[in-house]
Amino acid sequence: MQRREFIKGISASLVMLSSGLAPSSVANATSASSAKTKKNIVWVILRGALDPLHTIVPLKEPNFSQLRPTLADNVANSKLVLNPQFSLNPVLTNMHQWYLDKQLLPIVAVSSGYPERSHFAGQDFLESGGELKELESGWLGRAISASLDHNNNSAIAISNAIPISLRGSDSVNTWYPTKGEPADEDIYQQLAVLYQQDKKLSQNLMDGISLKEMAMRGGGNKSRKFVALAEACGNFLNQSDEIDCAMLEMGGWDTHSNQHGRLNRQLSQLDKGLEALKSALVNQWQNTVIIVATEFGRTVKENGTYGTDHGTGSAMFIAGGAVKGGKVLGQWPGLKPEQLFQNRDLQPTSNSFSWISTVMQQHWQLTTEEINHILPNNTPYDVPIIS
């Protein structure tokens, strides 16, 4: 290893010790009052396969209680009504208020088109926008590269490493809280002097310090729980002039047993985390779209351990201050035996990627050609979802 690369590695390690970030190209921090108008997108992936029927509850389905004699009773009387046909899980109180404020779009019976029921392959498919071996990058990374022709975009992943979703762009940085003690400020000053004759190394150091300072302005919370990570994500978007894209991920959605209690905790954390994200965004909320999706759904029938197994059709959410919300999207397929996919799963009626394409077209104003490069063969829907 050459000395230059060795020193560069030391620099990156020091910054990671203090803030959990990996320096690359990163935007400069600015005050919210001086920030230019941005159009933010936050991508939230729920790893493990969210159960759609326990999240967006079908109120008028006579087969629901028959298919789920235990699980249905826990959510059937939810007062978080969306319309005569659906309600939200009772713990999603903040998201329900967003719906009433016309800032949330629940979408029923969606699928990415992934044909199997493997978590890892399904997540790869969802993040890449199709078969990873064919695309070799992530749909969001390709979107950032395309949007660079329109704006000076950069992204941040609240993660230890760049997720598949963001691969394919050089304008991506990562941040994740560490348990280590912060590096002494004198070390940064000494490194700045050492690097002053090398623009690249100096810029890497300054970029890393910039992200560290943005994280510290949010209180320097080292918690790795979703609520704290979502708040940090909002702080980055609010405090930077140029970061207009972010990714969050939340695991723990694989509920083969004792689903009700486990999903109560999971959905509550999701709901509180998204509200923390909104609060941290401050005025940037009005320019933000949040996309929440999972790799596939779960069986419509509960199993013998009060859970559900890997399925097909699921649900997703599009939310934010820039969203024309207050309605449930997607075509409901029904839960009669002949309406199920392979006699066991919720039948998908729309494609997750086409909904994402719709966001890209209407929020980032990407062209049809650009969208076809980002998400091949997934045409946007002709539905106005962005204000």
Rank of each mutant, 00 (worst) to 15 (best):
S145E: 15
P69A: 05
N83Y: 03
G311F: 12
H310E: 12
Q266S: 09
F296Q: 11
G307N: 14
L126F: 06
P380N: 08
E369P: 00
Y188H: 11
L211D: 04
L53M: 13
S18C: 00
T30A: 12
Q259M: 12
D241G: 11
L14W: 09
H150M: 10
M247V: 08
V227K: 15
G220N: 07
T255F: 04
D73V: 00
L270D: 09
D241A: 15
S24R: 14
H373F: 14
I107S: 06
V172Q: 07
I158R: 02
G311T: 03
F317T: 08
K79W: 04
E127A: 01
R217P: 03
N160G: 13
E242D: 12
M316T: 09
D186A: 13
T37S: 12
I371D: 05
G208F: 10
R47M: 00
L277N: 05
V282Q: 15
T367M: 02
L346C: 07
I374D: 04
L80W: 01
L270W: 03
T37V: 11
P163V: 00
P380R: 07
N264I: 05
R167Y: 06
A319S: 15
A12P: 08
S128R: 08
S357A: 15
S128F: 03
T174K: 07
N28Y: 05
A76N: 12
E275V: 00
S78N: 04
N74P: 04
N74D: 14
G261Y: 11
Y99W: 11
H373G: 07
L105C: 09
W285S: 12
Y114H: 07
H150C: 11
L92F: 03
L340S: 07
G220C: 10
D345N: 15
Q239Y: 11
A276N: 05
V75E: 07
A121M: 09
N152D: 13
H54Y: 11
L166D: 06
P337C: 05
T349S: 14
T174R: 07
L229R: 07
T368P: 00
D73M: 05
G113I: 02
N173Y: 06
F341E: 13
D170M: 06
T288R: 00
V108P: 06
G48W: 02
P69V: 01
Q361Y: 02
A293C: 11
E131R: 01
K301W: 07
K225P: 00
